[in-house]
Computed example of a mutant assay.
Amino acid sequence: MKIIYKLKILFLRIVGYEKPLRVAFLKYLQVKYKTFKPHYETVLLESCKEAKKLGINKISVLELGVAGGNGIIALEKYKKSIEKHLDVKIDIYGFDTGEGMPPTNLKEDLPFVWKQGIYKVDKEALSKKIKSKIFYGDIKNTVGDFINTSPNKVACIFFDLDYYSSTKSFMDQIDSLREHLLPRVFCYFDDLHLPEKYISDINGVALAIKEFNSSNVKFKFGKNVDHIMDFKFPLAKSLIYMLHHFDHHDYNKFIGEAYGDDLDIKSTKIKYSILDD
């Protein structure tokens, strides 16, 4: 009877899935193969395109929360292809305590979901698999260490700190990073959704974003509208925000060349391709 009931629930979940089943298939591959992260690849690609439009050919990428290292391993794999494709240089940096999730009693951190000590990094094993620099320690202290390396401009950030408090600790230091950011920085938030529906704007990462936007004028995390034409970000659409740096000297610089002037009455075809930009 247990098998029959499980099959029933599985059937209901499949027929009730609102998106094409190919999306579920991609998600299955991501779960099955830990370094298969098409959302990481496309965020990295689009952020490099943004940098290129601004005339920047060397960029930095941050992963906040390294854990087993699958994200950095995937980024290093995608980096090789993108560097050749766009003629850019990509530096990848990881941030992690190295000791797993720290203790917390904050309700906003969802301690009933995240357990102290999980996601501990095997530093020795990971160091043999990657070339990227990882800053170990409390995120309150390591952002300054990153700044001291005089890094290239940050084009995208992968947030995977789980806790509200840890995410807020990084966000509180964004102003200190202002000289090292592009005018718009792609941000992927891994912990905005749980199937159990525990996370909302009253806790977790979503609350950190809301509070940041409420208390800042020069910086804002902007969320785009989910739309049928949003074809660029498999498995990541609603988890992507853009960090807008409104005071950046290049914020208003025109970068819309890809859209061209295809509305000219003399033109019989639209020249724009979904792959051009």
Score class of each variant (00 low, 15 high):
Phe159Arg: 01
Asp160Lys: 03
Leu161His: 00
Asp162Cys: 14
Tyr163Ala: 07
Tyr163Cys: 14
Tyr164Phe: 14
Ser165Leu: 08
Ser165Lys: 11
Ser165Pro: 10
Ser166Trp: 04
Thr167Ile: 13
Phe170Pro: 00
Phe170Ser: 00
Phe170Gly: 00
Phe170Leu: 08
Phe170His: 05
Met171Ile: 13
Asp172Gln: 12
Gln173Phe: 11
Asp175Gln: 09
Asp175Val: 05
Ser176Pro: 01
Glu179Ile: 04
His180Gly: 05
His180Ala: 04
His180Tyr: 15
Leu181Cys: 07
Leu182Glu: 00
Arg184Ala: 12
Phe186Cys: 07
Phe186Gly: 05
Phe186Asp: 00
Phe189His: 12
Phe189Lys: 08
Asp190Met: 01
Asp190Ser: 09
Asp190Ile: 02
Asp190Arg: 07
Asp190Ala: 04
Asp191Arg: 04
Asp191Met: 03
Asp191Asn: 11
Asp191Ile: 02
Leu192Arg: 05
Pro195Ser: 09
Glu196Cys: 13
Tyr198Gly: 02
Tyr198Val: 14
Tyr198Ala: 13
Ile199Pro: 04
Ile199Leu: 13
Ser200Pro: 05
Asp201Met: 07
Asp201Asn: 15
Ile202Ser: 15
Asn203Gln: 15
Asn203Phe: 04
Gly204Pro: 01
Ala206Asn: 07
Ala206Glu: 14
Leu207Glu: 01
Leu207Cys: 05
Ala208Val: 06
Ala208Lys: 02
Lys210Met: 06
Glu211Met: 09
